[in-house]
Design a binder for these strands. Structure first.
Lengths: 254, 254
DNA sequence: ATACACCTTAACGCTGCGTCAAGGTCAAAT
DNA sequence: ATTTGACCTTGACGCAGCGTTAAGGTGTAT
């Protein structure tokens, strides 16, 4: 039995346009073209189409389908396994989105304004691990186990996916700091924006924010050469500049 | 403080192109244009951008964001709630896809060929409910509670989303039947294809398929006027034609 | 002969930008 | 004064996977 586009389309439950498109991109060519230029499909094409649609239902892209269909079975299995991974990833992302929406909704109910930009950002696990590995011992003895544990605990509760967000916020602090440093004015708007970003960034690691603690950390950036080095890699003096900006921002002066 | 595109882009962690695009579609217009034609953004625009980015992270489309931002708070909450529903839907779809991939993988392992097209289709809950409502009592007494319960149980185990699939397969049976009926030959390829689709469709409701049962159902389509009416709405005689095709397909003759 | 259903190619539209291309502007360095 | 280099501008194409006119040829039933 032979089929025209529309007939095959009905059979397969797709549109005629789709079949023409598949022809166009070489994914499914008709068996032959009749004297009037009509596309004619036969049994073989039906089977190929069904394979194509199968993978399409799975959410595989047409190009990958093209690779898969007509390749040996074990390749197809491998492709499916890989595709499965991608689907899982997508679902995780969705979970994060949903969690964020829920959080926002909850906060709005609690009277916390939607304009609070803290909601934007997330966390990183690896950052944590790296941190613990490098400085864990020292920080713990210096600032007390309980504090550190609480902070770590808070972070552990977040999902991995939110990592990119915190990194972004961190990068934003650096970028803004650089621009602000160029102005030379720690009381200027750019510098104050930097301090605000820094506060937001910090808030991810702290259970509660206080101006005094914020100012304390800023001072530490100057006192502890590791932090100084981190910020000064932008420009020598950037750490001190940030501290000054934060002092003004918090209104705290040591 | 005022910002050019690039500066604002850095600050917000997006590309300059994005900001130009947002300007183009009217989502975020710069505060002013300077004498050289440069876009200049101010504090107000920063805040608006942050709101925009917030919703964007949530996966909301730009057009909807345009509606949301700048509307009263309660509207925003409503929008978020609706968006949450959509996210949940998407996740459900993903779950179905993943389940399908898993099933296919399992079947392939079990030696069942990937060319079996049964994997395509799903089920419907509502179809069930409708069915139970209309004919439940009668069917139960006629064919026995146990059978019906088993069938129903099987269907209940599937997810709602798979519904569209079974509907599609059902439609495919009808469409193919119509084309086959036009040929007038119940032994022809089209008619045999119809019988095959019908077998696939049945397989969703039955734990195990047998040729005899298939042929029995086909005969029932002629004997029970409700079914006859259903298939004959295509063309008078279609039910009988389908029965003949299935008899040939199964090799069973009553 | 005429209507009507089906076929063809061509081409724009949708989302959310990335990515050249071709050219103007601005501050600093020569 | 000019040259560099980093920034800015407006166009416009490209991406996936078709949906959707548009303009016109074909097939068949009346």
């Amino acid at each position: 039995m032979e089929y025209t586009v529309q007939r095959l389309a009905q059979l397969a439950g797709v549109s005629a346009r789709t079949l023409r498109y598949y022809d166009e991109i070489g994914l499914l060519k008709p068996a032959r073209i009749n004297s009037s230029g009509y596309r004619i499909y036969a049994q073989k094409e039906i089977e190929r189409l069904q394979q194509i649609l199968f993978y399409r239902e799975m959410g595989v892209g047409l190009e990958k389908i093209s690779d898969i269909v007509g390749s040996p079975d074990f390749s197809q299995v491998k492709a499916l396994r890989e595709h499965r991974e991608q689907l899982l990833k997508k679902r995780k992302q969705l979970d994060v989105l949903i969690a964020n929406v829920d959080k926002t909704l909850a906060w709005t109910k609690g009277g916390i304004s939607m304009t609070d930009k803290e909601k934007f950002e997330g966390f990183k696990q690896q950052m944590l691990d790296d941190n613990e590995e490098k400085y864990g011992q020292e920080i713990r003895t210096k600032y007390g186990d309980e504090q550190v544990n609480k902070s770590y605990q808070k972070i552990k509760n977040m999902t991995e996916e939110q990592f990119a967000e915190v990194e972004k916020l961190g990068a934003r602090v650096l970028a803004t700091l650089e621009a602000a440093f160029a102005t030379g004015d720690p009381a200027g708007e750019l510098a104050q924006q930097t301090a605000d970003f820094h506060r937001q960034w910090l808030s991810y690691y702290w259970d509660s924010y206080t101006k005094e603690a914020h100012a304390g950390v800023a001072q530490m950036y100057v006192d502890d050469e590791r932090f100084t080095a981190y910020y000064d890699k932008i420009q020598p003096g950037a750490a001190a500049f940030l501290r000054d900006a934060v002092f003004i921002y918090t209104g705290v002066n040591k």
